[in-house]
């Protein structure tokens, strides 16, 4: 599992990840999450400029027969949305930490990220939840 949980990211209990680069946070869902959801057919993400709040819903991700809420790992404002997902939502399945990223935000409080799980913590958490 650990090889599917990049060490440079932080993780939430709702199975989102965040990559911090300066004041920008890139957000996506974990490999564990995409596997549990199955084939993703649609991502409903907010528009650029929308404020998001840590722990609150910012969008949804859909498989054929399920809709799941997306919870933001941190607070801030959406600066970029992964438009390629409109045509290729399968990127979320195929490359959840790369091409399948969902949104980028301008972080309003970087310390929020420190409270999130590390890769090791998340791996343990996901394994435990799975069992």
């Amino acid at each position: 599992m650990s090889n599917k949980t990049p060490p440079n990211l932080r993780y939430t209990k709702d199975h989102e990840w965040i990559l911090v680069d300066g004041s920008t946070g890139t957000i996506g869902i974990t490999d564990h999450a995409q596997d549990a959801l199955g084939d993703i057919v649609f991502v409903d993400a907010p528009k650029t400029g929308t404020p998001v709040q840590a722990g609150k819903v910012f969008g949804t991700v859909e498989s054929v027969k399920a809709v799941s809420d997306l919870f933001s790992p941190a607070s801030g404002e959406v600066t970029e949305v992964n438009d390629t997902l409109k045509d290729s939502p399968e990127s979320v399945n195929e490359d959840p930490y790369g091409k399948g990223w969902l949104i980028k935000i301008k972080l309003s409080d970087k310390s929020e990220v420190d409270a999130l799980m590390t890769a090791d913590q998340y791996s343990a958490y996901a394994a435990q939840e799975h069992s």
Partner: peptide, 9 residues
């Protein structure tokens, strides 16, 4: 596109 419908959402 059944996720719009009541039996899922």
């Amino acid at each position: 596109l059944s996720t719009r419908e009541q039996h899922i959402r």
